[in-house]
Design a binder for these strands. Sequence first.
DNA 1: TTCTTCTTTCAGCTTTTTTTCAGGAAGATT
DNA 2: AATCTTCCTGAAAAAAAGCTGAAAGAAGAA
Lengths: 223, 223
Amino acid sequence: MKILLAEDDVKLGRLIKHMLETEQHHVEWVVRGDEAVERATDAVFDIILMDWMMPGLSGLDACRQLREQGYQKPVLMLTAKDAVDDKVRGLDGGADDYLIKPFEFSELFARLRALGRRGEAPLQEEIVTVGIWQLNRTRRTVVRRNSEIQLSAREYQLLDVLIQNRGLVVPREVLLDRVWGLGSEVSDNNLDAYIRLLRKKIDDPETETLIQTVRGIGYRVGA
Amino acid sequence: MKILLAEDDVKLGRLIKHMLETEQHHVEWVVRGDEAVERATDAVFDIILMDWMMPGLSGLDACRQLREQGYQKPVLMLTAKDAVDDKVRGLDGGADDYLIKPFEFSELFARLRALGRRGEAPLQEEIVTVGIWQLNRTRRTVVRRNSEIQLSAREYQLLDVLIQNRGLVVPREVLLDRVWGLGSEVSDNNLDAYIRLLRKKIDDPETETLIQTVRGIGYRVGA
DNA sequence: TTCTTCTTTCAGCTTTTTTTCAGGAAGATT
DNA sequence: AATCTTCCTGAAAAAAAGCTGAAAGAAGAA
């Protein structure tokens, strides 16, 4: 595999590079976060191995920055910290896995294999197409004619239920149940409000609406 | 989704809870197997995420116990064990899926989506065919020779009662009772008005009317 | 903390559905 | 035929359902 290693500690960096190379990997090693971002955007790597603490740009920020640019490849974070908070922040920042220093090389290799495997197969993006719209489950977005529209959590949930049942009228109660949870006490008008938000975001003013209302019953997408 | 998490490791539990919550799930977290059984029977969850090893009652036993009580919801087992034997025992015990620790959150989310979708039965259309007419209850429409006619709620109810009793004369009082509810205080003329609306919408001007009036008694459809 | 973004509610408005009203037409009864 | 009852008809009033912009409330990030 082609691996990008970002590690500012020269001794450790050299050691990791060496060990990975004896495992038949191809390693490129940088010592700063911003360098890592730069190299990752320039060349194609199968995986990035990134230290949490680095001068310039921290590993966390570098990772987040890459994800914001739509970077897809797995990032394995190396961290000396064991606090749950950091793990959480790391994963939220877009890291796929983390390894706590000091670590055993055998474990590093195992994780790399696991992440590498994921790259080959699936990372199944679940995409549904309805008319000119494309709903992307894993990214929570809608693409309409090449432009990607970001949806908030609720917006996405609502649209998801509708699209799952495309062609059918989904009654209001069903939508309220599935999106807000059974027995939740949100006002009925909340649904109206969200339908409106969705339409505002995803409808093309030129063409007809994606979400049709069926008065007295609910809403329908498609057909 | 509403998820019940049973995990005795406090750090891991907190992490999982956090990650699930950022994915818009509603999480309740318990640390013992017997607690899990108790909560699962008390409240409604869409899915149970259960650790294999737990003090008190093991995840395997908790799952088995729930299944014996007729519990239906999907259970996803978290296990550090990789042995084939354990997988088999877990699935035999009633688990729907298992995930081997350490796991990637992306994989956990994918599995949860898969299991969660199982519960959400796709909506079904209810269609009744009478002669050249097709009534669709969920859409409140009548299809006559390829053209779909939209009906309002009342209109549909009225037509539905008539068609359910096709061939028979349905007395006015029966119609009033069935459509407007027993003891409702609507004027008698309301029925006339609706018969008229229906005829206007669904009758083909060429042919005779679908709804025949039987003077002094009520109305009849067909035969 | 403060700021921003997401979620929810509110109040007024528009559209559609439901109901009523007033008059007229058609059968039935005498 | 005259009268009575029952049903039909068009229009208008009343009620319900949904839409909308703004604002309050909540949750998360800086």
